[in-house]
Amino acid sequence: MSQTLVVSGSPHVKSEHTVRSIMWGVVIALLPVFAASALVFGVRAIMAVLVTSAACVATEYVIQRFFLRQQPTVDDGSAVVTGMLLAFNVSIAVPMWQLVVGAVVAIGVAKMAFGGIGTNPFNPALIGRAFMTVSFPVHMNTWAFPREQLVSLGVDRPTGATPLGKIADALELGEPLSAIAAELPSHTELFLGTIGGSMGEVSALAVLIGGAYMLYRRLIPLETPVVFLGTLALITGVFWLFDPESYADPLFHILAGGAMLGSWFMATDMATSPMSRNGRILFAAGCGLLTAVIRLLGGFPEGVTYAILIMNAFVPLIDNKLRPPRFGKGAVS
């Protein structure tokens, strides 16, 4: 009878989900990709991931502590996710200082300037990447070959175009794909990731393992990656059926470039994707469509980054127009 009773509104029990458990869960899901990039690109890849993650965390801490004068919340893991994704999105050839600049832009401009976690309209890692692409085009478009100088920290290593880059070049020159078939990796190579490209985009297998983990932990909805990749496959498939000499097959498009990483880790970013299931399906379909359009018809060989960023801009509109189905609206009586 003596103790003071606590009064609060219902419910009085809470699920075990926390922002922290979600964000660190994504970090765990990113570990297979991390491992794959380390295996393919060597020590430098590990360095790059550590640098971007540390830079993101430090940026967020400094902004919260000294600019906003609030209790820093960097331990929730969201900055680490952004940092890792940023590193996975760029080439191994990018110098470290550029990575730090990218991280500062990703967290400072794309996230904190909009109010911090949950309020950023665009995916911070992709903004960071887009910023680096325009600012440092040379390094950003220099793609390293895998398994060369695994232990080297330098960037002076053999480089060349990515598989998607080669196809785009061929299309521009009017060469049939059969002519460069020998230069293109097989589907198995693409799946395992023993190819050139940015650090996290190479191994579809690693992304799938991470994605399966996130599905198991219910960190991402299944519909987003499935619809994203499905739409991409559908549109590239139509082109391929009409002209297999100029266009690669849909499986190639799914496995090559950033489609896997983008659809599983970036289009599913909670803050920048729609709230309703219907909305997410439309969002993912839009991402897939734009990716295909940019890859097949646009000037860039790769379009995942811009496809997702463009669709990010539509999220408020999608949220406003596509609402979850209401119980009782499809009434029986």
Binding site: S8, K14, H17, T18, V19, I22, T73, D76, S78, G115, G116, I117, G118, T119, P221, M270, A271, T272, S273, P274, M275, S276, R280
Partner: peptide
């Protein structure tokens, strides 16, 4: 009860 933190739009 845990501290209330900003919505992360997880849509749960």
């Amino acid at each position: 009860q845990r501290e209330t933190v900003p919505c992360i739009r997880c849509s749960k």
